[in-house]
């Protein structure tokens, strides 16, 4: 277990966000509340996964963490800075870096290494240090050999790793990834999730991974399930996946192994809740078979 007294890096209280729709005369003609009072507390070094459908409010929440959106209600502190304070906006963005869904639309330069250097350039980091940071960041995501390549020649997974490197080069305390794998094939997905886990474990970077793929959250310290702008479940992956029925109600998946265990249980097989891996299932089934 990790130390319980770690510092909070993100503290959100009663977060709300309302999208306003304007008519032709510039008056508000409709509004839509995407976040309806969300509390969030993330400690340094944690790996947090946020699950939910499109429209559940998870992307809105992610954008608030990076001060791209400012809460219309509630308070949000990122690394001690209030995101409403305009003078701190660059501090917030540096503390919580962000990786987006579409790999093509977040790479700015036509050369990999220059793209990774973009963030540090904006921060005014001296040239020599930029090179050092770029080298480290590309090595951390395993893309060093492609540093001279054009992003257009890379696979989706590789592009996302470049995007992650671009964020790491800014030395953030926390990375927020907003559905980074939604547009990737299975190979690309495991590439990206593997990279993120490694950064969390080896570099101690706090990770907030937003996704709708259940397999990707199994290794998280804590899973937050959102639906219709609210947090509906929170707990360890095992706790969350024990509630197969609740997840199905909001039409989220569970990994096939968890689903099979659930189906067996429904048929009367006394398996424990929240089986997450094939090893766990075969072991539990083995016990049952043995006692027959």
């Amino acid at each position: 277990m990790r130390k319980p007294d770690r510092k909070s890096i993100i503290e959100g209280h009663e977060l709300r966000y309302e999208y306003l729709h304007y008519d032709d005369e510039g008056k508000v003609d409709s509004s839509y509340e995407a976040l309806k009072g969300v509390d969030l507390d993330v400690k340094e070094g944690q790996f947090i996964a946020i699950l939910g459908h499109n429209g559940s409010g998870k992307s809105t929440l992610a954008r608030q963490l990076n001060a791209l959106l400012i809460p219309t209600g509630g308070t949000l502190f990122v690394d001690g800075s209030d995101t409403r304070d305009e003078s701190k906006v660059w501090l917030v963005r540096q503390a919580a870096g962000m990786v987006f869904q579409n790999p093509d639309n977040q790479i700015i330069s036509s050369v990999v290494e220059e793209d990774v250097g973009f963030g540090p350039e904006n921060m005014g980091v001296p040239t020599k240090e930029i090179w050092e940071r770029v080298r480290k960041a590309l090595t951390a995501v395993g893309m060093m050999e492609y540093r001279k390549s054009s992003p257009n020649r890379l696979s989706g997974g590789q592009k996302q790793r470049v995007a992650i490197a671009g964020v790491i080069a800014m030395r953030p305390k926390c990375i927020v990834l907003d559905e980074p794998t939604a547009m990737l094939d299975p190979g690309g997905r495991s590439e990206v999730v593997g990279t993120v886990r490694q950064l969390n474990r080896e570099e101690g970077v706090t990770v907030i991974l937003i996704t709708h793929y259940m397999e990707e959250v199994i290794h998280a310290d804590r899973v937050i399930v959102m639906d219709e702008g609210k947090v509906v479940m929170t707990g360890t992956p095992r706790e969350i996946f024990s509630r197969v029925e609740d997840l199905k109600k909001i039409r989220l998946d569970v990994p096939q192994v968890t689903e099979l265990a659930y189906m067996l249980k429904q048929s009367g097989v006394p398996l424990p809740d929240g089986i997450l891996t094939i090893g766990e299932l075969t072991e539990e089934l083995g016990k049952l078979k043995g006692r027959k």
Binding site: L68, W90, R93, G97, M98, N122, M123, T127, V134, G166
Partner: peptide, 15 residues
């Protein structure tokens, strides 16, 4: 924006 871009002022250069 999220990578801290705010125009040319105060920017350094990698190359």
């Amino acid at each position: 924006e999220s990578r801290g871009y705010h125009g040319g002022a105060g920017r350094t250069k990698m190359k």
